[in-house]
Design a protein around this nucleic acid. Structure first.
Lengths: 347, 347
DNA sequence: ATGAAAGCGCTAACAG
DNA sequence: CTGTTAGCGCTTTCAT
């Protein structure tokens, strides 16, 4: 029974101001050829009736929607959410809004979401994909006209058709530094728990290998690769601790894995920073507040998001711009979870 | 230099299938009056040319956009992100997509974001607002036609114009149970650190008061109210521990506050579960993995999100539906961070 | 410098 | 049951 109360349109503004609709349109889209008088009249009318342009009608004509899509595997991961926060703040400064969608780390959903953003005419896409080589995702991406920025991912894009920009992290360097630190403290049997099939896992593995190779040491490390979740973290920890030549230090590649790892250590009553040295990748509440605090390979996630947004904006605003890749530093932060091997009780 | 390659429209499908545009439209929107033959012809053509409807053109006509907006204070808060995950999963099942926007806990941004969603013609709004009484936010909300669902918030809507549904949590009951547990263990001087001005803080305060009142005990608790952040958590902890009659137990109203609290306890070398009993609200990695594990007042955040989405969908799909409020249980989970007062060393 | 008018892709009358 | 047609609110020629 309620009145239609349709929101005011361009026509209403034009009527109110006693001018033509196209003049109103020109004023609102900053067209140069408008008299000051006209601009004032129109703006006054706009304020009076509280006009807001209809984004759909604009989009229909193919104009920009001033929005950017972010496809993200798991927003509940604090790192990813910080990245998105950084991206959002940068985009907002430029007048763009960021639309999130979760893909639950499911490539099929991811592909759907990419298409969904295309339907919504986003002006660009930020991608933190769960898989770098999923055929469906790649196919969806190829239908996208808008510029793409990958966040800490490398696409397995054989055809090289989609020319994404990318913001990457120097995971290899960070891992190399972490391992080097352990080696300096006398550790030789180091267990590494890695997860996922994305770039970061490959790079971290390389970092481990390089650290040993640089010092001419035999590869007495053990890398346990698996899914990127707490269960793998726990299982891998268990497996490493059960080895005959039990590692004196563990390096864990991410917060989910860390959670599982700590769970296992607790159930075995292994004391971090005494019985065992421990390093994790990426700072979270857990690493910071743990007793003892856990050494980490850290990176500036907020900045990562901001840079990603910046690269995207550049390409949106100037379509001639080519893809750019930036690499962001990582930093090893030693903490009490790491002790020299001498103090470590053997098996 | 690239070819315009404009995406196929309804007209193209109609041409391909040799039928009229409206028939195509009818088939696609599931209109009952279409022959099987027609449906097949059209669907074939749709597949052949890879047609996807233009959501903007649909929206322009005032139709549903199959999207829901979520205004959220801080997506990097694991609780809020879990809620949004729950909401998203429910919405997806119904074919809706969820658009997130962060408001950085800033009411002004919040109001802007509400307007932004309105511009995008969302079919409904999920709100986890940072303030319940901000004039700008309320004004923005009043311009919204779509149904609203509040998540764990009560609006200070004097005019009662906007009839939101709501999903609430029984914070009062949870807090009452937590305090009762402490009282049973002999604690009398209990410090409570609360933060924020939203419903949950009020309810928790009431829970504390009720627990004491129920047993006819004098109010020997101390409630320190402040902003909902780690700094307040730390400052409040410091203040409570400096009291002449130092509390034997602390109850902390949220994960941010907890972080600050733990920071202070660590710097003072206060041992949780021995020198002091500790309870927090809401489960996070920190409460679970802490040594000793921290007792919590828990709630099912994923379910909360799902229910919120469900309530919204009901109102979207049947505009005659009135607003509904559901209250979700909370549960006190005792853990090793809580010990009887006898074992606790006094000041 | 300004206004009139033609669509953008779609849905919903309205005719057949 | 199906095709034709008139807009939805806006931008953009094209005249003036």
């Amino acid at each position: 029974m309620r009145m239609g109360q349709t929101r005011p349109g361009l026509k209403d503004v034009a009527e109110r101001a006693g001018v033509g609709v196209s003049s109103v349109s020109r004023v609102l889209s900053g067209h140069p050829d408008v008299s000051v008088k006209m601009r004032d009249r129109v703006m006054a009318a706009v304020d009076e009736i509280g006009y807001r342009p209809d984004i759909f009608a604009r989009g229909l004509r193919g104009g920009p929607t001033m929005s950017v899509g972010l496809v993200i595997g798991d927003i509940s991961n604090p790192l990813l959410s910080e990245i998105s926060l950084g991206a959002e703040s940068e985009l907002r400064r430029a007048g763009y809004s960021l639309l999130f969608v979760n893909s639950m780390n499911d490539p099929e959903l991811e592909a759907q979401n990419i298409l969904l953003f295309q339907d919504r005419h986003v002006d660009g896409l930020l991608l933190s994909l769960s898989a770098e080589d999923d055929a469906g995702v790649l196919a969806a991406l190829r239908t996208i006209q808008a510029p793409l920025v990958l966040i800490d991912r490398e696409l397995d894009d054989s055809g090289e058709q989609l020319m994404p920009s990318a913001v990457l992290c120097d995971h290899r360097g960070g891992m190399r530094a972490a391992i080097a630190h352990l080696l300096d403290l006398g550790h030789r049997r180091i267990g590494c728990i890695l997860g996922g099939h994305a770039r970061f896992a490959r790079m971290r593995r390389q970092g481990v290998e390089e650290a040993y190779a640089e010092r001419g040491l035999p590869p007495t490390y053990n890398i346990v690769q698996g899914p990127l979740d707490a269960d793998h973290g726990q299982a891998a920890t268990s497996r490493l601790l059960d080895m005959r030549e039990r590692p004196t230090a563990l390096v864990v590649g991410g917060n989910q894995l860390l959670k599982g790892c700590l769970r296992e250590l607790r159930s075995r009553r292994v004391v971090v920073g005494a019985d065992l040295s421990l390093i994790s990748c990426d700072e979270t509440d857990l690493t910071e507040m743990h007793d003892p605090p856990i050494a980490v390979v850290r990176r500036d996630t907020h900045q990562l998001g901001r840079t990603a947004a910046g690269l995207l904006l550049r390409r949106i605003q100037d379509p001639e711009e080519g893809p750019v890749t930036t690499v962001h530093p990582t930093q090893f932060v030693p903490r009490a979870s790491v002790v020299p091997v001498r103090e470590t009780a053997g098996a």
